[in-house]
Design a binder for these strands. Sequence first.
RNA 1: GCCGGGGUGGCGGAAUUGGCAGACGCGCUGGACUCAGGAUCCAGUGGGGCUUAGACCCCGUGUGGGUUCGAAUCCCACCCCCGGCACCA
Length: 961
Amino acid sequence: MGEPYNPNEIESRWKDFWRERGFFKADIQDTEHKFYYLNMFPYPSAKPHVGHGRNYILGDAITRYLLMRGYNVLNPMGWDAFGLPAENQAIHHGIHPRDWTVRNIAEFKRQFRDWGVVFDWDREIATCEPEYYKWTQWIFLKLYENGLAYRAEAEVNYCPICDTVLANEQAVGGRCERCNTPVEKKTLTQWFFKITAYAEELLRDLEALDWPEHVKTMQRNWIGRSEGANVAFRSEQGDEIVVFTTRPDTLWGATFMVLAPEHPLVEKLTAPDKRAEVEEYKKFAARQTEVERLSAEKEKTGVFIGAYAVNPVNGERIPIWIADYVLMTYGTGAIMAVPAHDARDFEFALKFGIPVVPVIAPPGGTAKSYVMKGTYREGLPGALREAGFEFADEDGSLYVTLREGDRARYIALVQSYLEPDSWSEVIGAGWQFVFSDSVMNVGSIAEERKVLERCQALEPDVREVHTVAELLWNVEFYRDLLFHDRYGTMINSGPLTGTPGDVAVERTIEWLEERGIGKFAVNYRLRDWLISRQRYWGAPIPIVYCDECGTVPVPEKDLPVLLPEVERIGLKGLSEIPEFVNTTCPQCGGPAKRETDTMDTFVDSSWYYLRYISPHDDRRPFDSDLVNKWLPVDLYVGGVEHAILHLLYSRFITKALRDLGYLDFGEPFARLFTQGMITYPAYWCPEHRWIPPQEVAEGRGCPHCGRELEVSVVAMSKSKLNVVSPDELIGKYGADTERLYTLFMGPPEKEIEWSEEGLRGAWRFLNRFWELLTAWIPRVKDGSGEFDPAALSEAAKRLWAKFNETVHRVTREFESKRFGFNVAIAAIMEFTNALEEYLGREEPDLGLLRRVIRDLILLISPFTPFISEELWLRLGEGGAVLEQGWPTYDEEALKLLAVEIPVQINGKVRARVRLPHDTAGDIEALREAVLAAEEVQRYLRGKELVKVIAVPGKLVSLVVK
RNA sequence: GCCGGGGUGGCGGAAUUGGCAGACGCGCUGGACUCAGGAUCCAGUGGGGCUUAGACCCCGUGUGGGUUCGAAUCCCACCCCCGGCACCA
């Protein structure tokens, strides 16, 4: 029997050991075997919970492994310490944000220590310290000097609760990323970083990054590159109106034009009698929140401004509208509308009675024709049938479906049967109206008008209808053919009619360029990064406004622009602190005012990975020589929630600093791993809000009012009260148990629910592990760990083989992309089970036993460092675990064993044959041995053997008849 | 709607990438220990079948088809789930 496992006693012995011994201190000058491992630094809010633990425990395990593999590992930690929660504490509770932050940082550090998670603390940084934000400001100045930071008036997202503007990236779905409040639009003068200058490169360089595919996809979508053409339309008055389109092949189908309500030409072009209406619409559009504007079910709105534009390809006069579905911030803020081939334009045209002209043949080549009862003479159905047309006859109304190739033949036939004052239509590649005396095509706005006129003249019911499209829309049968946005042969398109769909866009662009009407163009969805925040707790933007000199950057020597120390922080940030605002101009020395906005905290975090290399250098932000050797970061680990924000900004800053000559690489993070969140049930009572899970009893409702609770399993968060604190758990089971369970729960990239039962599984295992090893260590303590594998008993050979397999499986997970430590730990558990079984079966070979115990301790040590260090000490090998090399795997060990070869007969496993390793590994020997085996012969009696497939070392498959 | 990732026991998930499906753990069932246990230990645990209860047979990795001696894994079609984006012209 071994000793009882007492984790608290063991862990208290080792908590400071690794740090004190300096194992986690990187040698920054030695870049030969460097490995830069980085966890995203946290925002130190309140106390960490077991969900935080996942990130750092994973990183700690990887770091310990790398150290044992002999790498010079840099794994630093710091604090993303500026931000709104701290400031809100200050405003509401009068605590200085720095004090609040410092307190939380201490709490995090204590937790890391309890977890056994160690960092190179000499490199600790906090973005809120002047020594750090001085250099954040320095980066701002460099960008400003090089035209990458600018101030502009723009329509911005504003969050009324956070009382500040937000970057595009932080207004998720029209709501504030932090507090979920619907964002308002405001026109303000703000500071921007010109990230769009790098749009193409940010997109292109994704290709080579070893990042999860979904993160790359998200960035690609966010950058949103589209190719097309800019085409110059003109107003009737002669103003050029350039539109961007990805479908220049549909140009001949433009039947109207839409400008964004804020478009500068609106003012000029609006007809006097439309002015009032247009003004009102502009106000309506401005008033809406982003959420309202984006809401999917929203009907199209817009107004005609009383002006017309001329389509440069065919000279057609088309009305100009304004509508909020056209955004000033994308493309040119103006579009040509082709309702036949754009879903939004189609909806708009149908609603406002604007003509639709088809200009692209739908691929597939099917057309439809509806021949209403009473419009044709007797005999048409028979004639159609005879001519081989497919149709349905419902009460005398005919619904014909035909191939485009039969169109002419069909038209001739129908026409010969039409009553004089009637018509029918053929809808497919173009719309044709068949009258008894003529056939009319809807190939232009003019033709559309004529067709409609003629129909209205013939049929009083049609007089209510505004367009041919509306007329056709009323026939359910046609609906699926009236609009499509696929590529197809161009029709009704003047000189380009007949151009096939696969080259239509390209040919049209060539055609436009030859005539100087338009040219190839690329547009991006990405907008410039708005970095101004009207808050106190951030890095001040180092700019001064002087009446004489204008906008003046603070000289580098005057950095940092310090945050003023004030009694109490108010709602209006720096702008309400006169001592800060009023200053002198660095250029002329006259009175001037400081910029009062601080920078978005994502600016702070967009370069911190550079600072870790020389965190205390007070002469420069980073040491370029060393940074160029240590970066890119070899492995960056963090939550997927930063997939676009932080990761895109960091990439941009890196590229900008490279172009300014400070770096010689363009991507900060060579490899990225995103770990999933830990979830836990959260309970909601409509009256008492969030209820902590510990207070919720099975089957009973709210502990306060008994009302039924709404349960959702979501990421742990303090605000939902569904956090599990590590303290209690470590007191009960120890940190090793928490670590082991956290890594064993499931693949780390996936979200997973925390379970106390699961945790106890890890606890049980460590107890068994401890008891087993402490029981046997005294027997092998003074042994050598040497043995002759060939001389082992059969059971011992099996154990030795299993051991080597285990080393292989555990190592593989560290070396793989996925860090599947759930599998690695499972392998260790399996081996422990096998070891226990072996020890219960026979008197062990002590050399073998010492060897496997020794390596088993090392193998589990990245996951459970405390128990490992303690067992290592008792084994008496000397030194510390982290000074040992990682166990190696011996291929030969597996060859000692007999192999069990499954035998498939007609695809089913019918027998297993035990064979020596050599026999099983040789194709001919394997084949013969299996066919000779009694348990196989049994199945072959009276059957004909058709085929034998022998896979050496794997299996044998027989086909019999 | 578009893009990305997935569907394997009651649950989390394994399966060395085309070769014994369900490792390991949780849960569950039975038993032991116990005044008691939600602690611990032992055994069983995909579903079904059985005049031979076994070293047995059949079914089984979302659905339907295909390739192959052999498919969770490859191909085609479909269904469903998760994540992201979404009036971006």
